[in-house]
Design a protein around this nucleic acid. Structure first.
Length: 749
DNA sequence: CCTGACACTTAGCATCAGAACC
DNA sequence: GGTTCTGATGCTAAGTGTCAGG
C-alpha cells in the first residue's frame, strides 16, 4: 500500500543536517555553511503529485462555468452580510440554511457557542454566582471584583502547591462562555511580574582564563561574557567566523580599558578551564542526591506557584514564560549575521508591566524601578521588554491552555473551516487570473496557487543584513526556482530550492499547469537571479486581495486549511474500520507524516539517531523473523491437528494463532515508533483535534502543551495523571486513545 | 502607498524526568 | 541497577499580520 512510501521515508537518510552536500542553492551572499541545509525528500514529490491529481479531479467535477456564476453570486452575498463581529471572528455570518456542512463535524459544543454568540445581547445565560453588575451596560461576561477576591483568598500561595495539583477545581469551560468584543482582552489582570535571571556568580579563583598562554584575571563583567562563550565551546557555532567576530566585538565592549588593550585576538584566548568547570558542574548536578534534587524541584515549584500564574478576570491562568530570558550569546538559526552577539541582561528598568489599574501591581526588586506600568486591556501580554539584538519586543504571555490563547486558536480553525466552504471558488478565481492582462494580478494568482498547492508561507519582506537570508512565497527570488519544460517524463516541472523559516531548506520538484509555467517564464524574463520573482507582489497586497475574497482570509489560513484537510483525507484513505488498533495508529501516524511533509516540517536527526534507528530496525527484523517462525509453527500445528483431531491439538492451533496476532501487533507498534522518530514537531495534534471539531467537553484533553505541539490545545485536563497507569495497563497511551476517538469520528465522514 | 512599531503565532532545539529495556 | 529511549516541557528565534502615521 502506498502508505509504505510515506512510512519512514528517505527524509532522514538524506536529510542529515550536518552532512555536507553541495547543491545548487545560490545565495545572495556567501555560500558558507551549506552543510547546515536539510535536504528534501522524495516523499514530498509523491505526495504533492497525489494531491495535485486530487485537485485536478475536483476541478473537473465541478464545471467551472457554474462556478464562475457562483462567484458573482457569492460576492454579492458577501457584501450583504454586513459587518460581522470582528475581534473574535467566531461569529458565523448569518447562516443561510442552504449550506448543510456535512463534510465535517462541528461538535455540539461549538455550535452551542456560536449560537450564544449570536444572541449575545441577552445576559440571561450567566451563572448567577458570577453576576455582579458593573457600570457599563455592554454585555458583561467576566466579572472581576468580588468573585475574584474570593478566588484569591481561596488560593494562598503557601498551600497552593499540592492542592493546586490534586484538586484541579472544576475545569473552566471558557469555550462555553461569551467572548469579549471590541478588542478588549480582559477586564482584570493581576500578576507578580517576571522572574529575573539569577545574578552572575563569579568563577572560583582556581578556574583560570589564559591569554596567549598567560593567566589573566578578568573583571567580573568581562568574565561573565567570557563564560557565555566558554559554555558553547563544544558547539560548532564557536568555530564560525561571524560568530567569533560578533562575539569578540561585543565582549570587548564589556572589558575594562586595560583588558581591551591586552586582549586583541580571540584566537589567543583559552577558555578551556572555564569550559571544563561548567562541564564538571553539570556532571555534579546530574550526580546530586535524591534529596538535593527534590529540594531544587520544590524550589522551582514554589517559584512557579508564585510567579507562574496570573489572575485574569475570574481565573487563575498559567503564564507561559514568566522567566526573563537570561543574558547570553545570540544564536540565530542558519546563516545569521548577528550570531554571537551579546544578549544583554534585562533589568527592571527595561521592563514594562501591564496589569489592571485596580490590581495589586507587581513590585520591582528592592531598589529598582520598572520602566513603566501600563494598563492596556487591548493586549494580552503581562510584561514586555525590548531585546537588544534585533530591537524587537519580547513579551510574557499566557500559556496555551489559557482562555485567551485557546480562543485565538479556536478562531484560527474556524477561519480555516470557512475557507473550506469557499476554497473552490477561490481556486477557480485564481486560475482565471493566470490569464489576466495585468501582470500584478497574474503574479498574485500564481503566488496564491503556490501557497495553496504547496502550503508555502506568505513571505514577508525582511530587512537585509539583519537576519538570515530566508524567503517565503512572495519573497521568492528568481534563483530559487528552476523551470523544466520536461523532467523525468513529466511536463512543466518547477524545481524549488530555497531556505524558508528557520533556514530550513525547502526542496521540491512539482509539475504545474502549463499556464503557471508560462507565467513563471514571463516573470523571470530579463531578471537577475537575485531579483524578486514576484516583483509586483508582496504580502500586504496579497492579503488585501484575500480579504476581499473572504473575511478574515490571509495567506497563512491556507496552511492551516491544507494541513487540516490533508490530514482528514489521509486518514480517510489510509485507515479502515477492520484494522486492529496498532494498525490504526500506524495509519494515523502516516497521515500525520503526510501533513508534516506538506508543511515541510523537519527536524534534525537526534545525535543518537543513527544508532537508535539501527536498533529499531534490528528489532523490527527480529519481530519479523519471529513472525515467520510463528507462522511455520502454526502450519505444523494445523497439520498436526488434522491428523490427531483431538482437543489438545486444536487448542495448540488457537494458541499459535493468538501468538501470531500478538506478534503482528508488536511488529506494527515497532514500525510506528520508527515512523514517529522521524516525525517532527508540528501542530498536527491540535490540527487533528480541532479540525475534526473535537473539544474538551467531548474528550479529555491533555492540558499541557507540546507533543507534536498539542501546544495549543485548549481546555481542562483531568487526565494526565491517569495516563501513565493507562499505558502500563493497556499497552497504549493517551495519544492512542485520542487517536481512537478521532478515528471513530472519522468513520462518520 | 510605504514604513516601522507592535502584537501574536509558529516552530525547532535543548533539557530533563520517567519508562522501557537489558 | 545502569543505560537508553521517549515524551513533556522550556526556551526563544523567526515568522505572519495589523495598524497608525507620514
Amino acid at each position: 500500500m502506498s502508505g509504505d512510501q510515506i512510512d519512514c521515508g528517505p527524509r532522514f537518510n538524506d536529510s542529515h543536517k550536518y552532512k555536507e552536500k553541495e547543491h545548487k542553492h545560490k545565495d545572495h551572499k556567501k555560500d558558507k555553511e551549506r552543510e547546515k541545509l536539510k535536504h528534501g525528500n522524495s516523499d514530498l514529490k509523491d505526495f504533492s503529485d497525489k494531491k495535485h491529481k486530487e485537485k485536478e479531479k475536483m476541478k473537473h467535477k465541478d464545471g467551472s462555468a457554474d462556478k464562475y456564476k457562483d462567484k458573482h453570486k457569492e460576492k454579492k452575498l458577501k457584501s450583504l452580510d454586513g459587518k460581522v463581529k470582528k475581534e473574535n471572528g467566531f461569529a458565523s455570518p448569518p447562516q443561510v440554511k442552504s449550506e448543510p456542512e456535512e463534510d465535517f463535524f462541528s461538535s455540539p459544543k461549538i455550535e452551542k457557542s456560536l449560537k450564544r454568540e449570536r444572541d449575545n445581547d441577552n445576559d440571561s445565560d450567566f451563572k448567577p454566582k458570577k453576576v455582579k453588575i458593573e457600570n457599563d451596560k455592554k454585555v458583561k461576561k467576566r466579572k472581576p471584583d468580588e468573585e475574584l477576591k474570593k478566588t484569591k483568598n481561596k488560593r494562598p500561595v503557601a498551600d497552593g502547591k499540592k492542592k493546586a495539583k490534586k484538586e484541579p477545581e472544576e475545569k473552566w469551560k471558557w469555550w462555553e462562555e461569551e467572548r469579549y468584543t471590541d478588542g478588549v482582552k480582559w477586564k482584570f489582570l493581576e500578576h507578580k511580574g517576571p522572574v529575573f535571571a539569577p545574578p552572575y556568580e563569579p568563577l572560583p579563583s582556581n578556574v583560570k582564563f589564559y591569554y596567549d598562554g598567560k593567566h589573566m584575571k578578568l573583571s567580573p563583567e568581562a568574565e561573565e561574557v567570557a563564560t557565555f562563550f566558554a559554555k558553547m565551546l563544544d558547539h560548532e557555532y564557536t568555530t564560525k567566523d561571524v560568530f567569533r567576530k560578533n562575539f569578540f566585538k561585543d565582549w570587548r565592549k564589556e572589558m575594562t580599558a586595560e583588558e581591551k588593550s591586552k586582549l586583541t585576538d580571540l584566537k589567543k584566548c583559552d577558555f578551556t578551564e572555564m569550559s571544563d568547570y561548567f562541564k564538571a558542574q553539570s556532571e555534579a548536578r546530574k550526580a546530586m542526591s535524591k534529596d538535593e534534587k527534590l529540594k531544587i524541584k520544590e524550589e522551582n515549584e514554589r517559584l512557579l506557584q508564585q510567579y507562574g500564574f496570573c489572575l485574569m478576570d475570574n481565573h487563575r491562568e498559567r503564564i507561559a514564560n514568566f522567566r526573563i530570558e537570561p543574558p547570553g550569546l545570540f544564536r540565530g538559526r542558519g546563516d545569521h549575521p548577528k550570531m554571537g552577539m551579546l544578549k544583554r541582561r534585562i533589568r527592571p528598568k527595561d521592563i514594562i508591566v501591564n496589569c489592571s489599574k485596580d490590581s495589586k501591581h507587581p513590585e520591582p526588586p528592592p531598589g529598582t524601578k520598572w520602566k513603566e506600568v501600563r494598563h492596556d486591556n487591548k493586549v494580552t501580554w503581562l510584561v514586555s521588554w525590548t531585546e537588544n539584538i534585533q530591537g524587537s519586543i519580547k513579551y510574557i504571555m499566557l500559556n496555551p491552555s489559557s482562555r485567551i490563547k485557546g480562543e485565538k486558536d479556536w478562531q484560527k480553525y474556524e477561519t480555516a473551516r470557512r475557507l473550506k466552504k469557499c476554497v473552490d471558488r477561490i481556486r477557480t478565481q485564481y486560475r482565471e487570473d493566470w490569464k489576466s492582462k495585468e501582470m500584478r494580478i497574474r503574479q498574485r494568482a500564481v503566488a496564491l496557487y503556490f501557497i495553496d498547492k504547496l502550503a508555502l508561507r506568505a513571505g514577508n519582506e525582511k530587512e537585509e543584513g539583519e537576519t538570515a537570508d530566508t524567503v517565503g512565497c512572495c519573497s521568492l527570488r528568481v534563483e530559487h526556482i528552476k523551470l523544466y519544460p520536461e523532467n523525468d517524463g513529466q511536463e512543466f516541472v518547477v524545481e524549488f530550492d530555497f531556505l524558508g523559516k528557520d533556514s530550513i531548506r525547502y526542496y521540491n520538484k512539482v509539475p504545474v499547469e502549463k499556464r503557471v509555467f508560462k507565467n513563471l517564464q514571463l516573470f523571470m524574463e530579463n531578471k537577475e537571479p537575485d531579483d524578486d520573482l514576484f516583483d509586483r507582489l508582496n504580502t500586504a497586497v496579497l492579503n488585501k486581495h484575500l480579504q476581499e475574497l473572504m473575511e478574515g482570509l490571509t495567506a497563512k489560513v491556507f496552511r492551516t486549511y491544507n494541513a487540516s484537510i490533508t490530514l482528514q483525507q489521509q486518514l480517510k484513505q489510509l485507515t479502515s474500520a477492520e484494522e486492529n488498533v496498532p494498525a490504526k495508529i500506524l495509519s494515523y501516524n502516516r497521515a500525520n507524516r503526510a501533513v508534516a511533509i506538506l508543511c515541510n516540517h523537519q527536524r534534525a536527526p537526534p545525535k543518537t539517531f543513527e544508532k537508535s534507528m539501527q536498533n529499531l530496525q534490528a528489532k523490527i527484523d527480529a519481530k519479523r523473523d519471529q513472525l515467520s517462525d510463528a507462522k511455520r509453527e502454526l502450519k505444523s500445528s494445523k497439520a498436526d491437528a488434522k491428523v490427531r483431531r483431538d482437543e489438545k491439538s486444536k487448542k495448540a492451533v488457537d494458541t499459535r494463532k493468538k501468538a501470531i496476532e500478538r506478534i503482528e501487533e508488536q511488529l506494527i507498534a515497532r514500525r510506528t515508533s520508527r515512523l514517529l522518530s522521524a516525525l517532527p514537531s508540528s501542530t498536527i495534534w491540535t490540527l487533528a483535534s480541532l479540525w475534526l471539531g473535537v473539544r474538551s467537553g467531548a474528550f479529555p484533553w491533555r492540558r499541557s502543551t507540546t507533543k507534536p505541539s498539542a501546544r495549543s490545545l485548549p481546555g481542562p485536563l483531568t487526565w494526565q495523571t491517569t495516563t501513565l497507569n493507562f499505558k502500563s495497563k493497556f499497552g497504549f497511551n493517551y495519544d492512542t486513545l485520542l487517536f481512537l476517538f478521532l478515528f471513530s469520528r472519522i468513520l462518520c465522514f
